[in-house]
Design a protein around this nucleic acid. Structure first.
Lengths: 245, 245
DNA sequence: TATTATACCGACCGACGGTCTATTCTCAAG
DNA sequence: CTTGAGAATAGACCGTCGGTCGGTATAATA
């Protein structure tokens, strides 16, 4: 019986797929290498043929995440019709919706990000994503400074703040999702939309714009994600089936 | 021969001291429980008498850090002579110098914070510190809003931004320290001081103040820390003596 | 002095990431 | 078609890890 041989790159991608699923559900530390190779149906020797260590698997996974995220916003930079402010707004809106299609998916992603066992994984992803996005953001801001749209003496610093705010809204949403009860959900949604508005105005003022110039995503985005929770069954019941430790 | 019996609390504090030293030098994951108990000179059974797990040791350590940091800034809140702006500035200045006495100490702390193996430890510390500081910061800002000093519709959000900026300057300093060569150190120092100025102005505008109202630490603080590096011997030589993995 | 609770010891456990030797498979050169 | 070199794979094995457990010594109580 002839063996099915795949391209080495495909094999690596396949391993990354299984690792991603396991790392996201159980965390990098708790998902053991044996779990990964069992899911992929290969032996330990085979794994160590493709990756030098478990750590390298994490690194490759983070790089793939960053690469995919970057590919999702390339058209923003390719569009020559956009001015710097339009580009920045398009980028901010995209970063909210490029990776996930539905609000339910967004909810699942937020829930996953905030789980403490995923700290290491998402720290790596953020590092890789920052390294990829930062130069693009800096270029936009510098262009805006050059043509008088923005006013700042530190484009790199402003770019960092933009990315911080992006991460912070994720955190805020995630915290409310994890900790919030069903009852005060409406209050949480209100607080979150206020927070997003604060970031918009803060960026306006840091960049020397009129209030209302920066738009982070569409209005109602937060509410859509938060209400998607009700249609989404609590993942704790299904996720707790495997390990307790 | 009579056994020397210590107060349980002292015993716990002693364990935390040894754990702190080992976690900071080798990281939470790499420093094994056996290392900790060997340093403390006790057995495993004794350790598990005082802490239910290694994880609990980390948690207790983070709480102690937060408690100490909070104690260092209590006088800012006790001083009735300060107005909200003065209080905020005093707090921002204190957060730079409360924990460390000399610039060399600050350098060592930054260098430690940024090492990837210390991610878990400092994440916990930041969580505990945020939980402790956030209400105080919110109270200051609300007071300022009430008496007309500050203008914002989201004091909690502004408080979060203030803390984000505080953490971000740490990150920026640490990154430059770890990655920067000796030659472009002057450029790095300039970039860092520009960054701090950006945060000051950003907070001014977010809070509706005149530029120059917010002061994060003293001028020259960044330069003092960065130049302290030269008098500080590279820690990698001494630190790499034990483990490689 | 007898009893009980606390403090402590260290051999032991299963699981972990990683190594190593041996075997099988693939494909191009002869 | 044969063959040999190297890629691919298998899985027993290793040292170390966090954590457990049965047992011992000391302190407090009566």
């Amino acid at each position: 019986m002839p063996r099915i041989i795949k391209h080495p790159e495909l094999r690596r991608e396949e391993l990354l797929d299984h690792a991603q699923a396991l790392f996201l559900t159980h965390g990098y530390d708790r998902a053991s290498l044996n779990d990964v190779i069992a899911a992929a149906g290969i032996s330990k020797g085979a794994f160590y043929h493709y990756f030098p260590s478990k750590e390298a698997l994490l690194e490759a996974l983070a790089e793939r995440f960053a690469r995919q995220a970057l590919a999702g916003v390339q058209d923003v930079f390719a569009d020559p019709a956009l001015d710097p402010l339009g580009r920045l707004n398009a980028l901010l809106a995209k970063s909210r919706q490029a990776k996930v299609e539905t609000a339910a998916e967004a909810w699942a992603l937020f829930e996953t990000m905030f789980r403490p066992e995923n700290l290491v994984l998402f720290h790596r992803i953020n590092l890789a994503a920052s390294a990829a996005f930062s130069p693009l953001l800096v270029a936009i801001i510098k262009q805006g400074v050059a043509d008088g749209t923005f006013r700042t003496f530190d484009p790199e610093g402003v770019a960092d703040i933009v990315m911080q705010f992006g991460m912070a809204t994720h955190d805020v949403v995630a915290k409310a999702i994890v900790g919030g009860s069903e009852l005060d959900m409406d209050m949480a949604i209100e607080a979150l939309e206020r927070r997003v508005r604060l970031y918009e105005i803060a960026l306006d003022r840091i960049l020397g714009l009129a209030d209302g110039s920066i738009r982070i995503g569409e209005p109602g985005y937060v509410r859509a994600v938060m209400t998607a929770r009700r249609s989404n069954p609590a993942p704790s019941a299904a996720a707790a089936s495997k390990r307790s430790r």
